[in-house]
Amino acid sequence: MTPVELSRTVLHAVRRAVDDGELSVTVPERTVITPPGPGGCGDYASSIALQLAGAAGQPPLRVAEILRARLAGEAFIDDVVVTGPGFLNFSLERDASALLVEEILRRGQRYGHAEGAGGTVVRLRCPAEVRAVVVADALARVLRSQGDVVRVTCDGRLAPEWETVLGVGGGHSGSNPGGRPGSLSAGPAPHSLPDVDITIHPAPADPLPLGRDAARWALLYPAAHDRPRIPGDHLVQREANPLFRVRYAHARTRALLRNAADLGFHPEPGPVSDAEALLAALGDHPRILAVTATHRGPDRLARHLVTVADAALPLLPAVLPLGDEKPSAAHRARLALAEAAGTVLAGGLSLLGIDAPDHL
């Protein structure tokens, strides 16, 4: 069960509580499922009870108990615990992790993408400044992954080397007398989202000497209000470099698949112990893509990829059998989980316009 599926299950429980007269609220269109916070437990958590308590005229703990009773017996949910002021904490059945890995491997790098067009037309408008142009390019990729139709307009002429080195360009030029350097706007279009202005710090120095991948990461990884570090340590191949950790984790998963094939076994989704952080990060990927699109913040996706990589790296040494050990179901399950992590890393990097090499 993925966070998206769990969200639907939670909203269905709210709807049944309303139909039964236990809650008098408008059923929300969506609810956010997150990893448990401090004091929480299990695989995922929801603050839906706190969200509904005011409208329901009941304490959050009472709302949580009403929903807990309806959720405890749902398929793939092993247990539901109420913690703190009314957080619902979910422990999934062990088969749920296998289903998540199966879904990722089935959808490949399109895991987390919307199925079908959403019908929203978005026009991204940016000044001819290198960071704004790269951010617009990455946002266009993420928005399209969520089913939106995107048109990028740049106010001014792009430097030819930006297209050659950074892979940006081809947008439509236009005039924007009121535009200001370092701003990115999603302007009105038929059936478009509301107007959004994102102010970003322009690049403090020329990022082109870093090359395409490191330059794009240097411009996309910082939040909009942060100043990019150029040159920084984006080309250094060590753990202190987040881009290196992400690409290294991906390359390691590919190497494990090659080595496993040489040993005569292949990935097979199944339960994996001590991988809760990685499973939670992989399950959260669709939500991160949606939030990145909604808030126009590619830095959210970049930081999420670091989270996935950091959760995957401790698992990887235990994927292959050691010495004379024979490959077991546990090895095949860990290999499938590693492949799923590599798939999410490659797909996320692709949306940022960054390559995910199989060898580093």
Rank of each mutant, 00 (worst) to 15 (best):
A215V: 13
P209A: 08
G232L: 08
R212N: 11
P222T: 10
H225R: 04
R254L: 03
V236Q: 14
R245G: 00
A277V: 11
P209G: 09
A275I: 12
A277R: 15
V196G: 02
A240K: 12
E239Y: 14
H234P: 03
L210S: 11
A251G: 11
D213H: 06
P202S: 05
A275D: 12
F244Q: 04
A260P: 06
H250K: 01
R254K: 11
D274E: 15
L263Y: 06
P228S: 03
F244V: 07
A224G: 07
Y248D: 14
R229M: 03
A215P: 13
A275E: 10
A218F: 06
D197T: 02
Y248E: 13
A218E: 11
V272H: 08
H250D: 04
V196C: 00
D226R: 13
D274N: 15
N241Y: 06
R245H: 00
I198Q: 02
N241D: 09
A218K: 09
H250C: 02
D213T: 10
P267S: 10
P228K: 05
R216E: 10
P202E: 09
R238W: 14
A275W: 05
P242E: 13
A255N: 05
Y248I: 00
L208Y: 02
R212E: 10
L257G: 13
H250T: 03
T253R: 07
L220P: 01
A224E: 12
A249P: 05
G264C: 12
P228W: 04
L257T: 14
R252G: 04
I200R: 04
L257S: 14
Y248C: 11
P202F: 01
L219P: 01
A275S: 15
R247G: 14
A240Q: 15
D274R: 15
A224V: 01
A215K: 13
P222E: 07
Y221A: 14
H225G: 00
F265I: 13
T253P: 02
P231M: 12
A275Q: 09
R247D: 07
E276I: 09
L243V: 10
A275G: 12
R229W: 03
A205P: 01
